[in-house]
Design a protein around this nucleic acid. Structure first.
Length: 704
DNA sequence: TACGGGAATATTTTT
DNA sequence: TATTCCCGTA
């Protein structure tokens, strides 16, 4: 990610030395004077200042007339080589599943470096931090030099880094905290109920409001527009939603808090309204590469366009058949959108699949046959042989789990490693039963997707202590911390937070409080003060917090407490690896999955359980896809909504194309669906359209 | 004003 | 089926 790696370029020298950014290091931020002014631009969706191709000052003079040994390496097929050697101009790469996309990208980066582009002027944007780390690492290996200063990470991580450095240009404080989903919905809830917008008056619930706001930001469209198009049943509340969004925006600004969307939105606004910064950054990045472009949002696309506005050396890679994040506001048609922004873009295709055997690819191609609105393509493979994909009809969910467990044990005996197997599913809860089963058999697994460790209540509690220490204006974190105290409820907490905001030394407010809670409050203040003390090692500060929190944990969780305490110790260890409190908090909110990366060391061999969304970009020799019961996958609510159903189809396509050698699809034959009030009995409709001889049909009964 | 109990409800996927 | 929300009680 955009960790402060070895950044030598002057542009990033500030990032290396955070103390330059915060002169009052370790000191609490002084709260803003009464009514911190909210700039007018905060409420506007700016237009892109200039069409990028009109302003291109200089096209990079990369000739590639003498391709280096890297590009000529026998490990690239002709199509891949074309991509690697593509001119320094807007480029669209349509890369099918398993077509060696990553392989090609890292060769491209290596080639750019070999042709003389400074690594720190290459920006590589990927969907996850893990992917970025891996690509940077592999490029290093390829070039046989280390460490490389390539800028790589997710859009959000990039937003954070750039806003820390350049945010001042638009009046952003250089110290701010990042809100996760829960913080955001929590704040919305508070603001809404203050105004009397409660669920009882028919007002939407906080999560739905949050998704309206998020869509508006990501699509760069006004609230009324978004409500009318995507939430028509909320139209009667449009004026309130508009007002609420305004307050929400103002409050975040005043509390120095940014939600996930702000990391992108504020960067976008910065690039639009502050020309010197835009020019500086656009000039700095000589080459932009964006992976998984099919899932980018309008907002992200605009950022790319602005960052590429000087050199035009931008390459985006993606597969429209794998666009699965429409629910998050990603563009319906990102790949064609790119061609609209860059009409003269070069287009390349990678259609040879190196991952899957013919029978598996066959199934995948069948799934896409009836797909609507995709750029036509035909994947092919030379990987002959391989066993036929199976469709297993299971008598029950238990039978499904047992079948998988038995199969896994079988393969283990045949010498297949656990790390080469994965079980994929539509929604996180689909794996609960299987998890229980695997635990009984002592089969080690790690689950990706769904609720993360960092999203559990006890971890969030502990993080809240750290967050108030880091940013005493973080009202959300204060709220959480204060409510843990006996005899402190929403009202009292609110009053305390208010007076802290108005006080130059917020912690003094807690110490001066009177009443039955006096002792607890001053204890809290003492803990927070220690956590702010930069001279104490982070690990010790963590333990201080845990010590303070432990009694509360026991109070709230009873017998569960021991188990949860173990989680917290893991968290403390994780924190210990970080250079500063601020860095730790940023990392953990931006990448909640890293708590699992500890178990990613090579010695730890485990089976992977994952939602399909989280499995994007990955591959395994053996893949099981479970709960392929029509109504579960695709879910009932998608049945009568074509665009949504099409996204489900692509999701299934993603699942199937994760498999290298063996694909096993399973479904329990009967299941009562509460929402639809009917018994589901049919396999996933996308399977039903596959011709019979393509699959082997099996039956699984329960074993007692 | 805090807090627990009970009713209502919608139920995914992630940075 | 778990979460969220409302309301009555202390």
């Amino acid at each position: 990610m955009f960790r402060a790696t070895t950044l030598t370029d002057d542009l990033f020298s500030v990032a290396q030395n955070p103390s330059l950014l915060s002169p009052r290091e370790g000191q609490p931020i002084t709260p803003p004077e009464e009514g911190r002014p909210v700039p007018a631009w905060l409420h506007q969706w700016p237009q892109v200042p200039v069409r990028s191709h009109e302003t291109a000052r200089e096209l990079l003079s990369l000739s590639f007339s003498t391709p280096s040994s890297i590009a000529l390496s026998a490990r690239l097929n002709p199509q891949q080589q074309d991509v690697v050697l593509a001119p320094a101009a807007p480029t669209l790469v349509l890369a099918g599943a398993g077509s060696g996309k990553t392989h090609t990208l890292i060769h491209r980066v290596a080639e750019l470096v070999n042709q003389g582009v400074a690594p720190e002027q290459i920006l590589l944007i990927t969907f996850t931090r893990k992917a970025a780390d891996e690509m940077v690492h592999r490029t290093q290996v390829l070039l046989n030099q280390s460490p490389l200063k390539i800028q790589g990470g997710t859009f959000h991580a990039m937003g954070l880094t750039l806003l820390k450095i350049y945010g001042a240009a638009i009046g952003l404080h250089n110290k701010f905290s990042i809100m996760d989903e829960d913080d955001a919905t929590g704040l919305i809830h508070i603001l809404a109920s203050k105004r009397g917008f409660t669920a009882r008056t028919g007002f939407p619930k906080k999560q739905q409001i949050a998704s309206v706001f998020s869509r508006a930001a990501n699509m760069l469209r006004p609230i009324p527009d978004v409500v009318a198009t995507y939430f028509p049943w909320l139209e009667e509340h449009t004026p309130q939603l508009v007002a609420l969004y305004r307050v929400y925006t103002d409050t975040k600004w005043q509390q120095h808090r940014l939600d996930y969307d702000d990391l992108l939105l504020l960067l976008y606004k910065l690039l639009c309204i502050h020309a010197p910064t835009r020019l500086r950054l656009a000039h700095h990045y000589q080459a932009l590469l964006v992976d998984e472009y099919q899932d980018s949002t309008q907002l992200q696309a605009m950022i790319v366009e602005l960052l590429a506005s000087e050199h035009q050396n931008v390459m985006v890679v993606g597969d429209d058949a794998q666009a699965i994040f429409g629910f998050r506001g990603s563009m319906i048609d990102s790949m064609n959108g790119f061609l609209k922004s860059f009409p003269h873009a070069h287009i390349f295709r990678l259609e040879q699949n190196y991952r899957s055997t013919k029978p598996i690819l066959n199934v995948a191609n069948h799934i896409l046959e009836d797909a609507k609105g995709l750029i036509p393509k035909k994947l092919f493979t030379s990987k002959e042989g391989g066993s036929q994909p199976e469709l297993v009809t299971c008598e029950s969910e238990l039978a499904q789990s047992q079948f998988i467990a038995t199969r896994i044990l079988e393969r283990l005996n045949q010498g297949v490693s656990l790390k080469d197997m994965a079980v994929l599913f539509r929604s996180s809860s689909h794996s609960f039963e299987l998890e229980a089963c695997l635990t009984k058999l002592r089969l080690h697994f790690v689950k990706y997707g769904g609720l993360q460790l960092t999203e559990t209540a006890h971890v969030k509690d502990v993080l809240a202590y750290l967050r108030v220490a880091d940013n005493p204006l973080d009202a959300g974190a204060w709220h959480r911390v204060l409510l843990l105290i006996d005899r402190v409820g929403a009202r009292f907490a609110q009053r305390l937070i208010q007076s802290m905001e108005d006080h130059p030394h917020p912690l003094d407010v807690l110490e001066q409080a009177e009443g039955k809670q006096q002792r607890a409050l001053s204890n809290l203040a003492a803990v927070i003060r220690s956590v702010q003390d930069e001279t104490i090692p982070l690990m010790d500060r963590m333990n201080l917090v845990l010590h303070h929190y432990e009694p509360l944990l026991r109070r709230d969780y009873g017998t569960e407490a021991e188990h949860r305490m173990d989680d917290l110790k893991k968290l403390a260890e994780l924190a210990g690896h970080n250079p500063s409190l601020e860095a730790f908090l940023q990392d953990i909110t931006l990448d909640p999955n890293q708590s699992k990366d500890g178990s990613r060391d090579p010695k730890d061999v485990h089976l992977t359980l994952s939602t399909i969304h989280s499995a994007k970009g990955l591959e395994w020799k053996m893949v099981f896809v479970i709960w392929l019961l029509d109504g579960q996958f695709p879910p009932v609510r998608s049945w009568h909504d074509e665009p949504v159903l099409e996204e489900e189809r692509r999701l299934f396509y993603v699942a199937v194309t994760r498999a290298k050698d063996q694909l096993t699809m399973l479904y329990p034959v009967e299941h009562y669906h509460h929402g639809a009030q009917q018994v589901l009995t049919q396999p996933c409709r996308f399977i039903r359209s596959i011709p019979r001889p393509t699959l082997t049909a099996l039956h699984a009964a329960e074993v007692r």
